[in-house]
Amino acid sequence: MNEITPEQLHALGTDVSLIDVREPNEVAEVRIPFAKVIPLSELEDRTDEVPEGAYIMCHAGGRSSRVVKYFEHQGKELINVEGGISGWEAAGLPVERG
């Protein structure tokens, strides 16, 4: 499984495809402004919105790693963001709240 640290992802800038698979109530608390939100509960119906090479993020990395593995079995390469939004925040990277 391909993975990237929050710091490495941040260094790529905001012109990347970042998919946040957390549920709306989680995203309402804290989010990365340029991330597209596709909740895990909706992902099966929205797989066409996930481009090849997208970075996948959740709260701590568990759900996103499952998503990456699922798509690998479908023949699509995605990248898991290690530590999720928690790791992003712990690294002191910018987020929006509320």
Rank of each mutant, 00 (worst) to 15 (best):
S17W: 00
G53A: 07
R63M: 01
E26V: 05
A90S: 15
A28H: 11
P39Q: 09
P33M: 13
G84P: 11
R66D: 07
A35D: 02
R63K: 13
E49N: 09
H73I: 02
I56N: 00
N80Q: 06
S41D: 06
G13T: 08
A54P: 11
A28G: 10
T14R: 12
V21K: 09
E72S: 13
N80G: 09
G87M: 09
G87A: 12
M1Q: 05
V27G: 03
M57D: 02
E82M: 14
F71G: 11
Q8P: 01
H59G: 14
I79V: 15
R66S: 15
R46W: 01
E49D: 11
P51R: 12
P51E: 01
G98S: 10
W88R: 01
R97K: 15
L9M: 09
T14G: 10
L78H: 06
R46Y: 04
T5V: 10
E72T: 14
V67R: 05
G13H: 06
Q74C: 09
A90N: 09
V81I: 08
M57F: 03
R46L: 08
E96H: 08
H59Y: 14
L40N: 03
E29L: 14
F34D: 00
R63D: 04
E23Q: 03
L9Q: 04
L9Y: 04
E3Q: 13
V50K: 07
I56T: 00
R97S: 07
E23R: 05
L12I: 02
P6Y: 07
E3W: 01
V27E: 03
V16I: 15
D45Q: 15
A54S: 15
I32W: 03
R66K: 12
E7W: 00
F34G: 01
R97T: 12
E77A: 14
Y55Q: 00
S17T: 13
P6M: 10
N80W: 08
Y70W: 15
D45K: 13
G53M: 05
P39Y: 08
S64Y: 10
E49M: 11
M57K: 03
K76Q: 13
V37A: 12
